[in-house]
Design a protein around this nucleic acid. Structure first.
Lengths: 339, 339
DNA sequence: CAGGCTAAAGTTATCGATAACCTAAGTGTT
DNA sequence: AACACTTAGGTTATCGATAACTTTAGCCTG
């Protein structure tokens, strides 16, 4: 073997062992801090590992030991700020326990999710945290159910069928806004949303909003569009349609905060007085909203805590402890200056 | 082996092969679409795989074939909206090529980054995309340099020492704002920022801003704080300090858009007229800003494109093609209604 | 000082898949 | 009919680490 070939080869445990003058197994024990090893040997091995720049090959390690420290997290989109907070919460809890998080995005797409799940399972994760409220394929569900690892579903508060579930109550979310609209005496409320057939949790909030209003004898007007993305610009489009079709609208509940912001900007640009002429409410409590001078009325979900609770559930399950099958986190209406 | 034990065991390629009545190698070839396989055999194997719910074990596969389809992406924080866009861009390009992205967060922390890098390398990724502009430890740098896989650095436009680099020009970013301030005739410009010792790119923008102004004989006032986080709330705190210390300030350049938004909200709450009394500019072109009624003047970076370009570079490298050592993406000043 | 015990190491088989090579049967060519 | 070639499939060794077990030497105890 010439120098060039040797240079290309990665340093393995065998190299470390040879350099330290011990068996591979001893080196392995030193790296993992198990077994009984004399201090002198331990030092020789760690020194050798450092000298050679040894980085363990976890593929081999996990394959052999049949356990992994990867926790897979499957989200609709990392781009959505709400999940950023969730992931932060998850990491805060998981990292100190030595787990790494692997994130997959499903873009609310059924087929893509099945694909992602297959990819993620193929990495043999220790546990899985997955976002619900998506149309999951039967095949994907079965694959997960048959997989022998802890699975916790988040965000979705309907019964999950997995080991645990951590979420806000979407029903409460919708109802809170309905109640608020009634309390403030709005007569012609409306709802705007997009892709409701994909985002089942948003659909649940909407349903709850509707039925709560109906209990007060009010039927909200609705403008939804399955083809538009769940982004701020869509809020502008939808609210434009809404106000054109039904100018007397005096309160608008929006699918989420991003859409609410879009709606607000359109209303402002078109000379509407918010909240005196039209009120606006959203869902999520996105952090940016706390510093922008328009303080959107919204239903606040503590997303970081949601991540923490889910991660703690995972850790408990991995330690063989029992967990609550379902945890529903508090949600509360935060009144800003838009209603 | 009783039923219970069998139920716990995961389905392996050997099981699929047995069920299909072929050798393991043949089954493997079918799963990977290589080798020459008769249609009949192919069908039997795929049917068996489907029936048994076979999910390949990629740890074993990668270990054996010595290649992986994981591309590791190391970011300061997923929570920061700017990286969400970058990741989206990366995924858009990488997924069609069959690569999965693995995201690690370093929180701008030197030691944590070293840890994360070690963890990530231990998964034997096919390639690495890492964010620069952080104080990287010598050990981490060496580990990466010695690793035999394509590495592309993003966000940081200083020379990286890796295979490629894709970034905006931070120097241009700072200079653009300085020029803009001069053009608009501001006499008492200031800068606010936090954690500049950690975020080296922000520091570079600031330096460039300063020296460009100095070329016009203006010395900006500065309020920075190493202890505060790079968030919106910090913008409020810093601008409060700034206006108290130097009330005649007529233009403020902020470390990023989040801090700029915080500054804006404080200024508004405290009765300042933006932009007539004080102007505000940021850096990034965060998407939310496009729909909020305050349109922040900012330097726009196409983050999704940045991700795409970096991912394309990775794909090229993985295909053995050469790439440009450094790609500097266009940045431009987008004037909103705050300056 | 034999038997039992512990500490510190080493041996062997294995995880699940694949690279590299090999075999056997069928095809075509001259 | 003999040879080269292709097609479909199988055999064997290996990736890097670890579980489970074994060995060896030193030590204590009665």
């Amino acid at each position: 073997m010439n120098n060039e070939a040797r240079a290309k080869k990665r340093v393995t445990l065998a190299d470390v062992a040879k350099q330290a003058g011990v068996s591979q197994m001893t080196a392995s024990k030193v790296m993992r801090n198990t077994g009984s090893i004399s201090e002198a040997t331990r030092d020789r091995v760690t020194a050798a590992a450092r000298d050679l720049g040894y980085v363990p090959n976890r593929l081999a390690g996990s394959l052999s030991s049949q356990n992994s420290d990867i926790v897979a997290v499957i989200l609709p989109s990392i781009n959505d700020t709400i999940y950023g907070d969730v992931v932060r919460g998850i990491n805060e809890v998981l990292r100190p326990h030595g787990y790494m998080t692997f994130i997959g995005e499903n873009q609310f797409d059924t087929e893509l999710e099945e694909d992602i799940i297959r990819s993620v399972l193929s990495l043999q994760p220790a546990a899985i945290i997955l976002t619900g409220g998506i149309n999951r394929s039967e095949a994907a569900f079965r694959m997960l159910k048959n997989w022998q690892c802890p699975i916790v579903q988040i965000w979705d508060d309907s019964k999950s069928g997995f080991d645990g579930s951590v979420s806000p109550s979407h029903e409460a979310g919708g109802a809170l806004v309905a109640q608020h609209f009634v309390d403030r005496g709005f007569k012609a409320p409306a709802y705007i949303g997009a892709e409701l057939s994909k985002d089942l949790c948003a659909a649940r909030r909407f349903d709850s909003f509707k039925s709560k209003l109906q209990a007060f004898g009010v039927v909200p007007f609705e403008v939804t569009d399955e083809a538009l993305p769940r982004r701020g610009e869509t809020g502008q489009t939808l609210v434009a349609r809404l106000m054109e079709t039904r100018p007397e609208t005096d309160a608008i509940y929006c699918l989420n905060d991003a859409i609410a912001l879009g709606a607000l900007s359109w209303l402002h640009d078109n000379g509407y007085d918010v909240p005196n002429q039209v009120a606006v409410a959203g869902f999520n409590g996105t952090s940016l909203l706390q510093v922008v001078r328009t303080r959107l009325t919204t239903v606040d979900v503590n997303r970081e805590r949601l991540g923490q609770v889910a991660a703690k559930a995972v850790v408990s399950l991995l330690n063989g402890e029992d967990i609550a099958e379902q945890t529903v986190l508090d949600t509360q209406l935060v009144q800003g200056n838009t209603t």
